[in-house]
Design a protein around this nucleic acid. Structure first.
Lengths: 103, 103
DNA sequence: TCGATATTTAGGCAATTACTTAAATGCCGA
DNA sequence: TCGGCATTTAAGTAATTGCCTAAATATCGA
């Protein structure tokens, strides 16, 4: 929980998650999308992995990273449930609030 | 966005949000729930307010804080949409993933 | 108006973060 | 087995964070 939110506090790390939303990718290919050294990206990946948001799998010369399913969304959903005004299931929040605000 | 995730990276600040989920509360009453000086809580409240997650309203001697509706949930929902494997609406995530995992 | 209460602001300090460059590790193919 | 590529680890540095204490600001009630 703490580690997940710390991981999400960094824009490059959020961007890495967005990239990995489309499928796995090697560390080098990820790094190629940033203007930052490979070492720095490796550190970001390690933060994400420690938080349990991604896993890296070494295949030959490369390390392929992918998202851990559920981890992110479950944490955020759980947090929203205790941090948002009670009695408002996550799935209805947007519409329900819009209605309430209008009236 | 950046400010919101930075705000959420702190456990005390997340706890403040959870407290304010039940309704508004004065800065002092919030601070009373923490083992931390009022000055520190005031700083946390200021971070949350700068992020647009809460607003403080001065009434007499007190400043009452409350959550800004939608702000948190909309940001998180928007982020999940681009950071999670595509084609999975937030409202179905938990159940759908549970089913998928079972099969 | 005075003294007490509520809150914020200012200044300082220790710990952490986010980069960097350089070196180490591991795997591949000639 | 050697040279080269992919990646991580190590070490250093500048900037930021989170807390504190002390001081400032504003409001209340007598």
């Amino acid at each position: 929980m703490q580690r997940i939110f710390e991981a999400l506090a960094s824009a490059p790390r959020r961007r890495i998650l967005a990239i990995l939303a489309h499928g796995e990718m090697s560390a080098g290919d990820i790094a190629a999308r940033f203007e930052m050294t490979r070492a720095s990206i490796s550190q970001h990946l390690s933060v994400l992995e420690t938080a349990g948001l991604v896993v890296g799998e070494k295949r030959g010369q490369f390390v392929f990273y992918r998202q851990v399913p559920d981890s992110l969304v479950n944490t955020l959903a759980g947090f929203v449930q205790e941090a948002c005004p009670i009695g408002r299931p996550l799935r209805h929040e947007s519409a329900a609030r819009a209605r309430r605000q209008k009236s």
